[in-house]
């Protein structure tokens, strides 16, 4: 038989116990803690800004990227690509990216792959625009977390890299990326992705696609520097990110992002 005193005591304890969050019971790994503190002090965090109003779909960025990063030119894989979106007055949406727009968009016919070629008259278009895509170098990258061997990782400056010597080619990261930016490299047979041209940005150069763009539609900058033009634009203009609902905290910001863009 339980006494009233014991019952009240146990109830109070139980409620107090439920109040403690799970995180309070976690054993803190000092190495992990130091790593988190050190990361905050990093002076550089690369971020990308795309102005979709400026993009004309010439695809020179894709060409430059493929040549700069030794992605086989004729294989249908690419680290960056440009998508064309056409919304008709009847409310239909068509999107295409033939060869990742490596050769630009030199026809008004829309390539719907298995669904054939769609010809839309000038008068039928409500709005149409181009959207460059590349790796978002997420602050919470799912591709890194699914790697079973530690072959893909995030450097202190936020860029997600792939260790070609360590990658076993399981493809989890390719499945894990909600943006579909990863693919198998046809020559190295390892996971491949955009790394903001890590060999260039660490030397003070711009990424190949940024340099190749004649219209200034692509910009790269250090988001930890408050005076960087990219940081200023992100802070003061209306920018959006892709698929924010996934919680990946993408670091490629878009000016003029439309709801239809996925």
């Amino acid at each position: 038989m339980i006494s009233r005193r014991k019952f009240l005591k146990n109830t109070a304890l139980g409620i107090a116990g439920m109040g403690i969050s799970l995180s309070a019971l976690e054993i803190i790994d000092p190495r992990k803690l130091f790593a988190e503190v050190a990361a905050d002090k990093a002076a550089v965090r690369w971020a990308f800004l795309v102005d979709t109003y400026k993009c004309v779909g010439c695809g020179l960025c894709v060409k430059a990227c493929k040549e700069e990063n030794e992605v086989p030119y004729d294989a249908n894989v690419t680290r960056t690509w440009v998508e064309r979106y056409v919304l008709t007055k009847t409310g239909k949406l068509y999107a295409d990216t033939p060869k990742g727009a490596r050769d630009g968009f030199t026809t008004d016919k829309i390539d719907l792959n298995a669904d054939g070629i769609k010809d839309i008259s000038k008068e039928g278009i409500e709005k149409a625009f181009f959207v460059p895509k590349l790796c978002n170098q997420c602050d919470n990258p799912p591709c890194v977390q699914v790697c079973p061997v530690g072959a893909t990782y995030q450097a202190a400056d936020g860029v997600v890299l792939v260790d070609r010597k360590w990658c076993i080619g399981c493809g989890y990261c390719i499945m894990g990326c909600p943006y579909g930016v990863r693919f198998f490299h046809p020559v190295h047979h390892t996971a491949e992705k955009c790394n903001f041209c890590y060999h260039r940005i660490t030397k003070g150069l711009k990424s190949a696609c940024v340099q190749a763009c004649p219209f200034g539609a692509r910009q790269i900058g250090n988001i930890k520097d408050p005076n960087d033009p990219v940081t200023v634009a992100i802070r003061t203009q209306r920018v959006g990110v892709l698929k924010s609902e996934y919680g990946t905290k993408p670091q490629v910001y878009y000016i003029g992002l439309d709801e239809e863009v996925r």
């Binding site: 790994d29 190495r31 992990k32 790593a35 988190e36 050190a38 990361a39 990093a42 990258p141 890194v144 977390q145 530690g150 072959a151 893909t152 990782y153 995030q154 450097a155 202190a156 890299l161 260790d163 070609r164 010597k165 360590w166 790394n195 890590y198 060999h199 660490t202 030397k203």
Partner: peptide, 21 residues
């Protein structure tokens, strides 16, 4: 473990240099 912690940076540090080269 790298600067971004175990969750995001469990890797071979010298690979960063490989990419820079």
């Amino acid at each position: 473990i790298g600067e971004r912690g175990y969750m995001y940076a469990w890797y071979r540090k010298s690979n960063e240099e490989d990419w820079k080269k």
